[in-house]
Design a protein around this nucleic acid. Sequence first.
DNA 1: CTGTTAGCGCATTCAA
DNA 2: TTGAATGCGCTAACAG
Lengths: 343, 343
Amino acid sequence: MFREKITIKDVARVAGVSTQTVSRVLNNRSDVSADTRTRVQEVIASLGYSPNVFARNLSRGRSNTLGVIGYGLVYYGSYSVLAGVESKANELGFSLTLSLIDSFEPARVENILYDLLSRRVEGIIWAVPADVNNFDWMEEKLSKIQTPLSYVNKGPTDSDFVSALDNRLGGKLATEHLIEQGYQRVGIITGPSSWWEAQERLAGWREVVLKAGYSDVDSLIVEGGWDPPSGDVGLHTLLDRNPDIDAIFVSNDQMALGALQAARRLGLRTPEDLGIVGFDDIPEAAYFYPSLSTMRQDTRKLGAMAVDRISALIQAQRAGETLEPDISWLEPRLIVRKSSVRK
Amino acid sequence: MFREKITIKDVARVAGVSTQTVSRVLNNRSDVSADTRTRVQEVIASLGYSPNVFARNLSRGRSNTLGVIGYGLVYYGSYSVLAGVESKANELGFSLTLSLIDSFEPARVENILYDLLSRRVEGIIWAVPADVNNFDWMEEKLSKIQTPLSYVNKGPTDSDFVSALDNRLGGKLATEHLIEQGYQRVGIITGPSSWWEAQERLAGWREVVLKAGYSDVDSLIVEGGWDPPSGDVGLHTLLDRNPDIDAIFVSNDQMALGALQAARRLGLRTPEDLGIVGFDDIPEAAYFYPSLSTMRQDTRKLGAMAVDRISALIQAQRAGETLEPDISWLEPRLIVRKSSVRK
DNA sequence: CTGTTAGCGCATTCAA
DNA sequence: TTGAATGCGCTAACAG
């Protein structure tokens, strides 16, 4: 089907035309007679010729490629964004170069950036969760890059292009829902405090419970590590400190799952004794026991937004224009299931 | 930090050497004096030069890139393999071009292949689950490609290079475990019958129950679609047909989760009335209620194996040698939790 | 140890 | 509508 080592010259020779004519056919340009076009296309097919992207990019000075830097494939929020990115990039005709980082190691990141720039990617999508621990370092490095950059899920600044879920709104909606259901004292198991997303969800919760007149709010907060065990431990800690807690907003579904188990072991019925709302709406959430109320985030759409953004940036750059930095928000949606609804 | 449009010529001019010398420094070749090397490196740093990969690849005739074709980011087995691929590729110095397919659409796949070949990837990792519905078509297309190809999770053939989990062994181990626990009649909720992995897990189960002397084995089989709802429905169907079933082997954890819920609703206690073993060991499995016994597959390792394989193939091809097609098996491991252990 | 020459495969001038 | 010349940025082969 496709052979290699066959170049535009071979096609030209066999078709009895010049290489430029073949090039024109390849690029669907109009100034070729229908006749010639057909003949060239036949030769291309029969020879199994496929154009060499390197030569083309070198000559054109463009790569038509996007670099994506993701955060492992462990967290639902992270990897499902990648699906959206891949799909949208494909739709817009961009190829993708994928790099994954597991921990935030400066040397590794620097290598990745170097590699991406060497590959002349036309844009970079930074889909690594914002973490204050690496924020400064990152800001500094990334700000020096000429290549358009599109961030996923970090806070707004006045110099960056960001697509983000409105995590604060999510925290608010989840907490409000619990309060509306009649729960009196709503605690929170938050994610690592250095994560922007965790901070925002926490801020949303805080806003609502303060408005509800809670006092001693800080004692209602426990920090987890996103995984089920930390949700388990988290609930224990929370109840030790505040036996009167009757509901919790948990910053992601995996921790909520751990909390669900902890509650069961403690003899607390969900939702009667303890209401729970998670965050993410992972595919399993509807089948937890009891089924988990949670904040759904359309991560695929978020990924698509980031690609749209970078695409616009690239267009602008090609046209010599400049775009105003800004942030596009995506709204999460409350999915009510059994874990938060008292009869 | 990194600027563009700066070429090897600029570096050469500023450093007062020829481009060739710069090239030597870039490629860490030994035949450069320490003095010159240092000077050139300094210039490179100060200019923020980064080599143009296209020019390099075009000149070298090599891309140092691997193409990976994955199957969406929905199934744990699929996407976690990608993590292993990424990590190992990085370790070996390969870049990655990622393509994801959601459904098996020939035109889409053909486009991807065309693109990968245009990018002159040196090897392709086919991490799409083998499905008899697309098998012939795929075989035909892929067999015509000159580029080395490494398959993940498909059956052995005498012409392909494959890395696969021993799914049949997994089915056997899971089923044997249930029988050892004293369950008398072990049914199965299998994955879509067109999937190789589902077939193999089923075959492992079948082997064991036949050996155990079961009759009317086919009535103990129900087919699901990998997702929780189908596990739910599956258990109902199974019990309708065979009220005496007291255990099930479920072909993945998500369906097992659905079955767990169905059992609960039917008033069946797990593990007392119904033993359950899943497959995959997704991160949530230990926190299901009850915690789920399952077959753990080291998907990261599987991905790494595929990269090692393709790397070997590429080396061989460069050296003009030929490798014998074969299959590397990875063994799954039984993780015993509560869902399958009667007191 | 270093420089010169040539060419990788294609697209972009410009002519015809 | 087509073709000839030129260069993209780099490295391989050869000199020196």
